[in-house]
């Protein structure tokens, strides 16, 4: 996984509540057996009409925002289906940070597995960033994960101010170091084996039920 340290980029405003993962990446793109190339399907039914033509006024189709690296959006972003194709599609499109008042839990987890930083901010801060992004005033934001700050740079050269954000220390470390989670866990193999030995003793039904039917 690519590390996340600092990110400077254009912020695209998507002023919508409860954006679900079906909207982020519709079902027809879930038939792939690869993680790559999903950017083409990102927000497909909003970016393209039924004939496959670009819908010009959708935010990510507008010239100002089609190179966006940051998405500023509404609450409960990423609700619904657990499909990791949603963060894969965002990443493939070039988005590595999403700023919202709240996130759905599974999507939030999936972001951290893919080097995407989801930033939760109070609604008034999100509204301010959204307004700036819509006006094209602070379309460039710098997200500094180590310092846990977002700094805006307005197009007229003025200082857009800085906002602090909170992040779980474990998730922060994983992003900063670009960990392979599995390698990290496998280092605790002895603890896992110890847990299993204890459970076999205390809860044998967890281990016998499967084999009674004859295994695979």
């Amino acid at each position: 996984m690519e590390k996340f340290t600092t990110l400077t980029g254009i912020a695209a405003p998507l002023a919508m509540e409860n954006v679900d993962t079906d909207m982020i990446i519709p079902k027809q793109f879930l038939k792939t057996i690869k993680r790559t190339g999903l950017g083409a399907g990102l927000f497909y039914e909003h970016r393209f009409d039924e004939q496959g033509e670009e819908i010009a006024d959708f935010v990510l189709n507008r010239a100002l925002y089609n190179g966006a690296k940051i998405l500023v959006t509404g609450g409960n972003f990423g609700c619904g289906s657990s499909r990791e194709h949603a963060p894969w599609a965002l990443l493939d499109f070039g988005i590595r940070c999403i700023i919202a008042p709240s996130f759905a839990d599974i999507f939030h987890n999936n972001c951290f597995k893919n080097g995407i930083l989801p930033v939760t901010l109070p609604r008034e801060d999100v509204d301010r960033l959204m307004e700036g992004a819509e006006r094209g005033a602070n379309t460039t934001l710098t997200v500094d994960l180590e310092a846990q700050t977002i700094t805006g740079a307005s197009s007229d050269g003025g200082d857009g101010g800085s906002i602090s954000f909170h992040i779980d220390p474990f998730n922060k470390q994983c992003l900063l170091e670009g960990h392979d989670d599995i390698a990290l866990t496998l280092k605790r193999e002895d603890k896992i084996a110890g847990f299993e030995a204890g459970q076999k003793q205390d809860q044998p039904w967890q281990w016998t039920g499967q084999t009674q039917e004859g295994g695979t």
Binding site: S82, E84, I106, N109, N110, D181, I182, T185, L186, I192
Partner: peptide, 21 residues
């Protein structure tokens, strides 16, 4: 019982565990 993403599916297959808050 809860839903997980594909990276977590891989994590469970490999380790039978998950990091969770």
């Amino acid at each position: 019982a809860f839903g997980i993403g594909t990276s977590e599916v891989e994590h469970v297959l490999a380790t039978q565990t998950l990091f969770q808050t």
